[in-house]
Design a protein around this nucleic acid. Sequence first.
DNA 1: GTCTGTGAACCGCTTCACAGCC
DNA 2: GGCTGTGAAGCGGTTCACAGAC
Lengths: 246, 246
Amino acid sequence: MSQQRTGPTDGPDFPDLPEATVARLPEYLRALHHLAEEGHDTVSSEGLAAAAGVNSAKLRKDLSHLGRTGTRGVGYDVTLLIDQIEQVLGLTHRRAVALVGVGNLGHALAGYAGFGSRGFRIAALFDADHGRVGEHINGLVVRHIDDLPEVVDEESISIAVIATPAHAAQNVADRLVAAGVTSVLNFAPCVLNVPEGVDVRKVDLAIELQILSFHEHRKSALTALPGRAGQDLQRADRLGAEAVGS
Amino acid sequence: MSQQRTGPTDGPDFPDLPEATVARLPEYLRALHHLAEEGHDTVSSEGLAAAAGVNSAKLRKDLSHLGRTGTRGVGYDVTLLIDQIEQVLGLTHRRAVALVGVGNLGHALAGYAGFGSRGFRIAALFDADHGRVGEHINGLVVRHIDDLPEVVDEESISIAVIATPAHAAQNVADRLVAAGVTSVLNFAPCVLNVPEGVDVRKVDLAIELQILSFHEHRKSALTALPGRAGQDLQRADRLGAEAVGS
DNA sequence: GTCTGTGAACCGCTTCACAGCC
DNA sequence: GGCTGTGAAGCGGTTCACAGAC
């Protein structure tokens, strides 16, 4: 092979991380920034794990995939670890993001400060409704979705957020992909069909509530019973987090 | 034991589902409603799996946990399966939900129609800012967070959504739990510390984008290389969904 | 023949427990 | 002595492949 698969050993190059680890790195990053603000220079796996809501063995294994990051007997250097994680996540430059659909939810997302402070810049807003085109939101002008190809190209956008109604989402996704977008965050409650090489993540608010509903349902079923069965409740919560008082 | 752990065999009682299955049932439910609207009476595991963006073996195994649900040689009865899943998820009655924090995002969530149509009713809005208390949003009046215990009790609320800034979230969670809430959907970018028996799910928009950023970073690292390494791109997308044109 | 339900193999992730370095 | 990095064991979930009901 012309280029070896870069192992986890050498520094700034590209390790091949387990998907579960990738999903947790952003949480570690957030916790680390919080620790840095509080003036910590260094943190133990135990401390960082608590701040991120995971157990310390998992954290250590996750970080071990990044190469040598900590110091035995001491812990992790906070700012160094922040740099390493941002490096791996590709957050060394601020990525431009397009947002499609400026209805109820899209409006809120367009104004969400958390994007700006955590590596992203909302670079363009789109809507299919001519009545909304031209509206100013948070310093940006809403453009018509027909302008997608042009703007995606100008702003070098590779990530887009879909906040349209479900019935419009597939069409929007198709147009985004055609324009060159290769990652999509989908808030519409539907499955998107995209070609290979395009990543889709989905956030469905009602689904989250329905999952909670299941657990509520179970809890009330169990507590309704006396005795032995009630004790199962102690097994019932899977998500009781420890950690970080703000 | 005084009460046997109810197996997956008998109908309306309470099966003990794998967490991964629970997380997918809502997606099946959404797909089924869509199929029902289109007039389908019955659907094969293949068809439903496609509409929900999973593979058919997984779907069949998931549904097998609910007891006998399909008919061999035929498929699944759409309306029957909807009933069974809603039963299991505890969606037979519309659950009251409290929403805390009516800023940017909270405002949008308060107006989100998807909650209403999928088993939930936003029963109360809260904010700590006296300037916002009294405001009308979508037919509801914003109340002060001090009224939490009273309202949670009156409306029999067991699920709450936190849409406050991160620094306020832990305090809000504590108050919610004290008021009797046992499930929380947290939009604030922080870890919540809650007692055993309380479930927390977290949605962090910036984290979703950061995960996508990682994949973008990897894709560009790979496509920058010619030859062998570029072929790995075909392994790179984990989420290319098939299915359901709307 | 068709399509579901399911044991068995497989795989990835988590957890344990400790060796190795500070 | 303290804390990280990591093989090994354990566990849950996914996939395979086919038996069995229609």
